[in-house]
């Protein structure tokens, strides 16, 4: 209960803010619609309404507030509208339907998981190289950092186009962009983790005349586990963002990114919000899953 309460408090305040913002965001379109339907609104001149502030319009047309929560195509949908859309697209639609969020979610999730696996593998390998080779430490680390300073939105279309031109399509290009975002936290965390054993621990192995690989498998790798899991949590969320971003230039209207893009083409804000909420829940579930694995593994290793 003590864990749930703070979360609920934050959720409640977000919802309060959200509901409070809806009338101001939607008032202009609502008034236009009401005027067309024959209701008298203040001011009755569309140009004067365009130049008026949203606060003034809401105050002078308070009767219209309930209508702002029930717009067909709201600028800011109310939470219950998003919830209703989620219910329809997640639960009511068949998962094979092109309008099912589960269908699109799986497309994004498969790219995320593949990319996360590639990124984690590459990250661990790079970290092992960096820790064991001074040359790699000097050469790879600056590039790894530089790679993350390039905006992913700029590089994602290039990767998609280049891979497309050599005949690679579908899940792989998206997975590569996912991997591109998720390898970095793993590299940083694992380098720190593999270097976590102190001088005394390393001296101890030296007194046994242990080889480098014995030191790696018996000391460095187990000692790095807490760092690895912390990195994986960041990495998996980054991988999901990468997969969604990769779906924007793909233009295939598939996946959660595709839903967001088509939503913005057709002014379907509800659809964008649903995809957004679904992606957030997906990311949270992935992070929770890794957290659970972390707890289990570290407890068994006596590191928790």
């Amino acid at each position: 209960m003590s864990k749930v309460l703070p979360v609920l408090a934050v959720v409640a305040s977000i919802f309060t803010l959200w509901y409070a913002a809806v009338p101001f965001m939607n008032v202009k379109e609502t008034l236009t619609g009401l005027e067309r339907a024959g209701t008298t609104v203040v001011p009755d001149n569309p140009i004067a309404r365009r130049d008026a502030s949203a606060v003034a319009l809401v105050l002078r047309n308070s009767f219209a507030i309930p209508a702002t929560y029930a717009q067909e195509r709201p600028r800011l949908p109310a939470p219950h509208q998003v919830a209703q859309d989620l219910w329809e697209t997640v639960v009511l639609k068949k998962v094979t339907s092109k309008r099912s969020l589960v269908y699109h979610g799986w497309i994004t999730l498969s790219a995320t998981l593949l990319g996360f696996t590639i990124g984690t593998g590459a990250g661990i390998l790079l970290a092992v190289g960096i820790v064991h080779s001074r040359a790699m430490d000097m050469s790879v680390m600056p590039w790894a950092i530089a790679s993350q300073t390039i905006p992913i939105l700029a590089i994602a279309p290039m990767i998609i186009v280049v891979l497309n031109s050599v005949g690679i399509q579908g899940v792989v290009p998206k997975a590569i962009i996912s991997a591109y975002l998720s390898f970095f936290p793993v590299v940083v965390g694992m380098v720190k983790g593999l270097r976590a054993p102190d001088a005394m621990q390393l001296d101890l192995l030296k007194t046994y005349n242990a080889s480098g690989s014995q030191g790696f498998w018996k000391l460095r790798l187990p000692a790095s586990m807490p760092y690895l899991f912390a990195s994986l949590k960041i990495g998996v969320a980054a991988a999901l963002v990468g997969a969604i971003v990769a779906e924007l230039p793909a233009g295939g209207a598939r996946g959660l990114g595709g839903r967001m893009l088509t939503g913005s083409y057709y002014g379907q804000m509800v659809q964008i919000w649903s995809a957004l909420v679904f992606a957030a829940v997906l990311a949270a579930s992935l992070v929770l899953l890794i957290g659970w694995l972390q707890n289990r593994t570290l407890k068994r290793m006596g590191l928790l």
Partner: peptide, 8 residues
């Protein structure tokens, strides 16, 4: 000086 046992 420290026992330095592996916790795992």
């Amino acid at each position: 000086q420290a026992a330095g046992l592996y916790p795992w």
